[in-house]
Amino acid sequence: MEFNEYEALVVTLGEALKELAEEAKTKKISALGTDSEDFQTGYLSAFHRVITLIQQQADIYDVPLEKLGLDKIKETDLI
């Protein structure tokens, strides 16, 4: 399947957001009980909000989450 430039951008952004969110969750877990726990929790929360917004909009526009690379991220993965 050939992507146009907009589809390629969206796929790339989805993959990058997923990677960054996974990294943020790891950092949040590592920060438990430290001075940076609140910051890392807030940082992860921002990814939660952005990714769930994209997922909601994709649903409205009937865009499969698989096309965005966000199909395997569940809300509970980002808390």
Rank of each mutant, 00 (worst) to 15 (best):
M1W: 11
M1P: 14
M1E: 14
M1S: 15
M1V: 07
F3I: 07
F3P: 02
F3R: 15
F3S: 14
F3M: 15
N4Y: 01
E5L: 09
E5N: 14
Y6H: 12
Y6S: 11
E7A: 15
L9P: 01
L9S: 09
V10F: 08
V11K: 04
V11F: 08
V11P: 00
T12G: 02
T12A: 13
L13D: 00
E15F: 08
A16M: 05
A16H: 08
E19L: 07
L20M: 07
L20N: 09
L20V: 03
A21T: 13
E22F: 07
E22G: 00
E23K: 14
A24C: 12
A24G: 09
A24S: 13
K25M: 11
K25E: 14
K25D: 02
T26C: 12
K27S: 03
K27D: 06
K27A: 04
K27I: 00
K27V: 04
K28M: 03
K28E: 03
S30T: 02
L32R: 12
G33S: 06
G33R: 04
T34H: 02
T34W: 04
T34R: 05
D35T: 14
S36N: 03
E37N: 12
E37R: 01
D38V: 10
D38E: 07
D38H: 00
F39W: 06
F39L: 05
F39Y: 13
Q40N: 01
Q40P: 01
T41R: 13
T41I: 01
T41G: 01
T41W: 04
G42C: 10
G42F: 11
L44S: 03
S45W: 00
S45Q: 07
S45L: 00
A46N: 14
A46V: 15
F47G: 08
F47Q: 00
H48F: 12
R49N: 05
R49L: 13
V50K: 06
V50S: 14
I51A: 14
I51M: 04
I51K: 02
I51G: 10
I51D: 03
T52S: 14
T52V: 12
T52K: 05
L53T: 03
L53I: 04
Q55R: 14
Q55V: 12
Q57H: 06
Q57A: 13
Q57R: 13
D59T: 11
I60A: 13
I60Q: 08
Y61D: 14
Y61L: 14
V63R: 09
P64I: 01
P64K: 05
E66M: 07
E66V: 10
L68M: 15
G69Y: 05
G69C: 06
G69F: 03
L70S: 12
D71R: 05
D71E: 15
D71F: 11
K72F: 07
I73C: 00
I73M: 01
I73A: 00
K74V: 12
E75A: 15
E75S: 10
T76L: 13
T76R: 12
T76M: 08
T76V: 15
D77H: 06
